[in-house]
């Protein structure tokens, strides 16, 4: 379980990315209560102080909100969730295109490549 994080990048950021994906996938739905800081810490074997920082980070992005005495909840603001989803897509695409351009692929080649790839794989995941 320790291997789900890279030791050379801040764990709180990696955990935030991981939870953002859970939220975007709907594994954690709008309005859902997040597990307590300690529960999450035990699940991913991470220091509760670090988990606390992840929750604060997600809160500052308005993805979750903490309600005094009740815990932390996924936002019900669909607009925020949609923009996070777009943002993460753009991030991944930027990395992909950078890599392809570094290898000298033209946009046309990339586009054709993408279409072929999708046709071959269909909607199958992973």
């Amino acid at each position: 379980m320790a291997d789900i994080f890279h030791s050379s990048q801040p764990i709180y950021q990696q955990l935030a990315e991981r939870m953002k994906k859970q939220i975007i996938r709907g594994e954690l739905a709008p309005g859902d209560k997040l597990p307590s800081v300690r529960e999450t810490g035990i699940e991913v074997s991470v220091n509760p102080n670090t988990v606390q920082r992840t929750y604060r980070e997600l809160e500052s992005m308005h993805i979750v909100e903490s309600r005094r005495g009740q815990g932390t909840f996924v936002t019900e603001d669909e607009g925020v969730l949609e923009s996070i989803r777009e943002e993460m897509k753009t991030e991944l695409m930027t990395t992909f295109f950078q890599g392809m351009h570094e290898m000298g692929y033209t946009n046309e080649e990339i586009e054709r490549g993408l279409i072929d790839f999708l046709n071959e794989k269909g909607e199958q995941k992973g």
């Binding site: 764990i11 035990i42 074997s45 220091n47």
Partner: peptide
């Protein structure tokens, strides 16, 4: 992770197994 109280306690641990504690220190 489950039983120390980081609101109040300070835990100091010596170890060789750094990989084990990489994510909890």
């Amino acid at each position: 992770i489950s039983f120390i109280d980081l609101e109040k306690q300070l835990v100091l641990i010596t170890t060789h197994e750094i990989r084990e504690v990489e994510n909890i220190l």
